[in-house]
Nucleic acid binder design. Structure first.
Length: 278
DNA sequence: CTGGGGATGGGGCCC
DNA sequence: GGGGCCCCATCCCCA
């Protein structure tokens, strides 16, 4: 298992994916692993450790196989992609709000009981365009849309291997590559999620170092490592300790510095902002 | 303990 | 939509 594979920590990251948007809807997500049981599980190559992901299932040389229904978003999906579950029925949708302190649960229940009456023509006055659920009052429909239906319509595409969600199918496919690891090194068999990661890895075999330092004769196989190296030539390092103003070339060094006790007074867990020299 | 190199990860952006 | 690339982050190892 790669070191940081699937364990990326965003808590201290200055460049976090915007999961906040997704997290808001987390309470409506239903993870049902059994949904995936029907998909083929291929034996994984030896290149992955025993704890690596065995269910490498849907990746081919040309990319992902046509998405099964479980990869479709929970809602707000193109109709051709199918869905995880049928549209919320009137009885279940009201139950989703019941049991909570939601102020609309009672009203929805009352509306549902009205809706269940086929003779109550008033109940079909206001129709939700998302789920075709009808309401007798505009306010009932508005509350439904605000608290239930439209919230789900913003739902994203859920990964079947983990709990991550994405707002686009493309982003989800990209993420799934981190599970399927379709790019395999022909030399050592190590697998990577993207071709350029494999390219970088191959350089460790060939010794190629295309990134040269303009200040010294060192060269690097990876641009990021060159960038980190360039910091060693700078008098003013990029990352500064808020407590002692000492600067560091890397965030990790600043972290080590903090953990060593300099910044114990800073107990809120927040990182000092990196200092970017002009 | 500190600083630095090496390797690798993921999301975002652009074409 | 996919590939390539950029950028940032992290971990391990070593001097």
């Amino acid at each position: 298992m790669p070191r940081s594979f699937l364990v990326k920590k965003h808590f201290n990251s200055s460049k976090k994916p915007n999961y906040g948007e997704l997290d808001r809807d987390t309470h409506t997500v239903i993870f049902a692993p059994y949904l995936y049981d029907s998909y083929p599980v291929l034996p994984h190559a030896d290149i992955l450790s025993s704890v690596a992901y065995n269910p490498i299932t849907v990746w081919t040389a040309t990319g992902l196989l046509p998405l099964p229904g479980d990869l479709s978003p929970l809602s707000g999906y193109p109709p051709s992609l199918g869905r995880v579950s049928p549209p919320p029925q009137s009885d279940t949708s009201s139950k989703e709000h019941s049991g909570s302190e939601s102020p609309i649960s009672d009203e929805e229940e009352r509306l549902q009981s009205k809706l269940s009456d086929p003779h109550d023509i008033e109940a079909e006055k206001f129709l939700c365009t998302f789920c075709n659920k009808s309401y007798s009052t505009f306010s009932g429909l508005a509350k439904h849309k605000q608290l239930h239906c439209e919230a789900q319509s913003r739902k994203s595409f859920s990964c079947k291997y983990c709990e991550k969600e994405y707002v686009s199918l493309g982003a989800l496919k990209m993420h799934i590559r981190t599970h399927t690891l379709p790019c395999v090194c022909k030399i050592c068999g190590k697998a990577f999620s993207r071709p350029w990661l494999l390219q970088g890895h191959i350089r460790t075999h060939t010794g190629e170092k295309p990134f040269s330092c303009p200040h010294c004769n060192r060269a690097f196989a990876d641009r990021s490592n060159l960038r980190a190296h360039l910091q060693t030539h700078s008098d003013v390092k990029k990352y500064q300790c808020k407590n002692c103003s000492k600067t560091f070339s890397r965030m990790s060094l600043l972290h080590k510095h903090e953990e060593s006790g300099c910044c114990l007074a800073q107990s809120d867990g927040r990182l000092p902002l990196p200092v970017y020299p002009d």
